[in-house]
């Protein structure tokens, strides 16, 4: 059971209030029609599965209903930061290498 800091409610809440939404920072291509099937499939289907730091999108489903991002370690489950939609992570895998 993770303890998650909601950047909008500005406090820690129990994991059961949240839903995970997979990898963060996946941007919808601006002109889908100009992409090849392969390029489009990269956007649709392919996701990272790192051992280590991962940026994930979550939603505070039972709370403020806001989506936000999280930098989480997939081995230790440690959450290094949560940040609002539109912001960039301040900690990345490169930083920690």
């Amino acid at each position: 059971m993770l303890h998650i800091y909601c950047p909008y409610c500005e406090e820690y809440r129990e994991e059961e209030e949240f839903h995970p939404h997979g990898q963060a920072h996946i941007v919808r291509p601006l002109a889908p029609e100009s992409l090849t099937d392969e390029e489009w499939s990269q956007y649709l289907f392919f996701r990272k599965n790192p051992r280590g730091l991962h940026h994930e999108m979550w939603v505070h489903a039972a709370g403020c209903r806001k989506f936000f991002n999280m930098t989480r370690h997939t081995v230790t489950y440690k959450i290094l930061e949560t940040y609002k939609m539109g912001q960039q992570p301040s900690i990345t895998a490169e930083d920690t290498q």
Binding site: I4, Y5, P7, E10, Y12, M70, I79, L80, E81, T82
Partner: peptide, 9 residues
């Protein structure tokens, strides 16, 4: 404590 950005509100 492992934490997000703002720890002690």
């Amino acid at each position: 404590p492992s934490a997000g950005k703002k720890l002690s509100a």
